[in-house]
Design a protein around this nucleic acid. Structure first.
Lengths: 220, 220
DNA sequence: TAGATTGTTAATCGATTAACAATC
DNA sequence: TAGATTGTTAATCGATTAACAATC
């Protein structure tokens, strides 16, 4: 295996690698075994030079004049993205979003196994969602330690998120996907990505409000 | 009302305005009526100069030496973000994610009303989720037109997303929040934000994989 | 007035893109 | 070889930050 070339690249690159990976899977399924950066970019609405640059941070995967071998690049991206292994994940919060995440089969397909869901609600504890048990929140520390869980999805109300995150990190979790609409403050060696659904809708509302006079020309 | 000053600002600014809005709501609830950019930034992990710059794109909201009046800035941000009105939204897809969105009360609190949910599944049609009816997908065009729906949430499988988006746009929708893991191609006057859950987890997996030798030093 | 904090400028930093030599 | 397409350089573009004069 190749790779690891430069040690600095835009934060957005990893996200795009994930898009490339998915598009390549699709091409592979359709029996296409070679693709140029131009063709791949067309599919994804991304400039070909952007794709070549992103890939160049990790190695030389293409053949000049030919493009990229789909299967080979898939294998390399799988390795780079850390998708060549299984990840055990816990979900905290068995509400609507937590449940939706537990039911999201794309996670499993990618090697993310939902080991358990934690909640405080007596009525939910003991049940399971999509095969994953709902356990009492009080047991989370032991569970995370015993099962060497590294990743967690936080799907609790904003007010509880920071405490949950702290507890998770204390137990050994080092990557968090956070759905609670707050900026959780964490040690910098813990990776935390937030998905803020309200903010997305609000941004849409903003754009809608000004769809008419989109470029503001009025100075006050 | 003031504002509309500059006509160009970073794409990230609107998202941050939404964070400011939420943090100010919290301050307001706690009876605090003045805040400095420094204090607000501390709460959100955002540099004070960033906050001042973001706000400056829209007007002069603060008082030198004093900071910002919480209630006043809230009112202004509400206006800027387009949250001073109600928005009618449809959800397409009554699966786990669609249902979670319909149940997400923060939307309603912000003035986003889920007018209806559309699905093809006979077993779901006729039921309702959190007070919103599930209607047959075939009726979506009429419904959107009759109710002048402007915003939509797409929560269908990847393969169906483009067709759904096209249909929505044809019916008059101009803003889309897309949960399907594909890049939907739309006319540029339609606003589309995507939430790609798998990509988020994959990015975390990447960071986990290299948490040890985070800064790559190995050249191949 | 003295201290605090804004709004804005200019510098820095980071990401994208075009262009092209290298090479399959 | 001629044509295609890479990987990389350098230019451009955009976003963040520090610094500070203005002013409450």
């Amino acid at each position: 295996m190749a790779r690891r070339k430069k040690y600095k690249f835009p934060k957005t690159t990893i996200e795009r690698l994930s898009y490339y990976f998915r598009a390549l899977e699709d091409l592979s399924k359709r029996g296409i075994d070679t693709v140029s950066s131009e063709a791949l970019g067309g599919k994804l609405n991304i400039k070909s030079s952007q794709i070549r640059k992103d890939l160049s941070y990790f190695g030389d995967f293409g053949k000049r004049g030919m493009g990229y071998d789909v299967k080979y690049l898939l294998k390399e991206l799988k390795y780079i993205l850390g998708l060549d292994r299984e990840w055990s994940v816990v979900i905290v919060g068995a509400g609507h979003i937590g449940a939706a995440m537990a039911n999201y089969d794309s996670f499993r397909k990618r090697g993310f196994n939902i080991a358990a869901i934690f909640d405080n609600d007596e009525k939910k504890i003991g049940k399971e969602i999509n095969g994953s048990p709902i356990l009492p929140y009080d047991n989370i520390d032991d569970f995370v330690k015993q099962n060497k869980i590294e990743m967690a999805i936080i799907a609790v109300p904003a007010a509880a998120a920071q405490a949950v995150a702290d507890k998770l990190v204390e137990s050994g979790v080092t990557a968090i996907l956070n759905f609670a609409p707050v900026a959780v403050q964490l040690d910098e060696n813990v990776r935390c990505l937030s998905v803020d659904l309200t903010t997305k809708l609000e941004a849409l509302a903003y754009y809608m409000s000004y769809s008419q006079d989109k470029l503001w020309k009025i100075y006050s």
